[in-house]
């Protein structure tokens, strides 16, 4: 079973079609990167898949659960790390983790245990009792991702996780994200092409609401007839072309 399966998934905002009949399959345990320019429809697609936006047409299945008819079950098996840092500023690092675990139904003891383990895993143990508002930008982003991980999602959506971070913090976060590979299905949206190239198994490129190309970085370069992945990206986003399998 694929972790994510979309069937002509569409979202219109008045006269604008943000996502147009998206057909996408992401395998279980796969690391999939979704690229595109601003307004290409990446975030809208992620928001529909994570149950934040109701589609205008089509359907999507998360671990076999329809986002239309079994939205609660679909939500329960995925989690999201939003584009902006999303933490409760006046709660401590540990309280933030416990809160999210509890919102997904964990008992207090179970949530505490999971939070302790994640604090160690994410290098946040020393700041466990610090209020989230006192953390640096990089640490906050790390906490934000840890909050998505605490529910042990089968599918994790990472919406531009390194946006606005300095080079060092970005590199650290890359390492952390790379360590998640194979443990769950990961869907990453990013503007950093090298990030997608280095981390993901397959890459999808969106342009004006359409998925215009899917494949490994090498396959995309070959399909575009370019030497570099950046040139391939520019090729696919300049003019729509048929995707490759």
């Amino acid at each position: 079973m694929n972790a994510i399966e979309t069937k002509r998934l569409t979202k219109c905002f008045r006269s604008i079609t943000a996502v147009d009949a998206l057909e996408l399959s992401v395998g279980s345990g796969e690391f999939f990167a979704l690229l595109g320019q601003n307004g290409a429809g990446k975030t809208t697609a992620i928001r529909m898949l994570s149950g934040l936006l109701a589609p205008t047409g089509g359907d999507a299945f998360i671990m076999g659960n329809s986002i239309l008819t079994a939205s609660e079950a679909a939500k329960a098996c995925c989690n999201l790390s939003p584009q902006e840092t999303a933490v409760a500023e006046n709660l401590t690092v540990k309280e933030n983790l416990v809160l999210i675990a509890r919102l997904y139904g964990a008992e207090k003891a179970e949530a505490d245990e999971a939070a302790e383990a994640l604090l160690v895993q994410m290098g946040l143990k020393e700041r466990a009792s610090s209020r989230a508002k006192t953390l640096s930008g990089g640490m906050k982003r790390r906490l934000s991702i840890a909050m998505a991980l605490i529910t042990k999602p089968q599918v994790l959506f990472l919406d531009e996780p390194t946006l606005g971070l300095d080079v060092r913090a970005r590199r650290e976060l890359w390492k952390m994200i790379a360590a998640l590979k194979g443990k769950m299905t990961l869907v990453l949206t990013t503007h950093y092409l090298e990030e997608a190239q280095a981390l993901s198994d397959r890459i999808g490129i969106m342009n004006k609401g359409h998925l215009v190309a899917v494949g490994t970085a090498k396959e995309l370069c070959a399909a575009a007839g370019t030497d570099t992945f950046e040139d391939a990206f520019l090729h696919f986003t300049e003019e729509e072309s048929e995707g490759i399998a």
Binding site: G51, E72, L80, P82, Q83, E84, T85, L103
Partner: peptide, 17 residues
């Protein structure tokens, strides 16, 4: 209003609540 602006609400909306 702050929860909305920091995307915290988005995270909560994505939960099964």
């Amino acid at each position: 209003a702050k929860d909305k602006s920091t995307s915290f609400l988005l995270r909560v909306f994505a939960s099964p609540m």
